[in-house]
């Protein structure tokens, strides 16, 4: 029951994809000045089954680089908050499961 709990699985996927996104945004930030570098990001489908990589559609500068510092900082902070939220949800769900195991045995 715990193993194939659909909500736990979804939260776990979301956590994995959010970490992946942080990696992509971090790479964009590391390559702020790399000529020819194109910013990349991930999007998830509504079922959270797969993450799709896409090229960020921002203005390309003269050196062929299109990393937008403000966009990346905003997305990074949004993504970080989302990660913390998911962990919070996950903890809540696990607490509920634990309390049903522990308190259930006391009856």
């Amino acid at each position: 029951m715990i193993d194939n709990n659909p909500m736990l699985n979804k939260l776990e996927n979301l956590l994995t994809w959010t970490a992946k996104r942080q990696q992509a945004i971090g790479a964009n930030l590391a390559n702020l000045d790399t000529p020819g570098y194109r910013a990349k990001d991930y999007s998830f489908d509504s079922e959270l089954q797969e993450a799709r990589k896409y090229d960020v559609n921002t203005t390309v500068k003269a050196d062929g680089n299109n990393v937008d510092l403000e966009r990346e900082m905003t997305e990074m902070n949004k993504n970080g908050i989302q990660y913390l939220t998911v962990v919070q949800f996950l903890n809540q769900k696990l607490r509920m499961l634990r309390s049903s195991i522990v308190d259930g045995g006391k009856l």
């Binding site: 590391a30 900082m73 990074m76 993504n79 913390l84």
Partner: peptide, 19 residues
């Protein structure tokens, strides 16, 4: 900007430990 990114990753890792 890179320092800020490292800060975010650090807080993500710390939270992961609290799961």
């Amino acid at each position: 900007a890179n320092i800020a990114a490292i800060g975010v990753v650090k807080s993500m890792i710390t939270r992961t430990m609290e799961i």
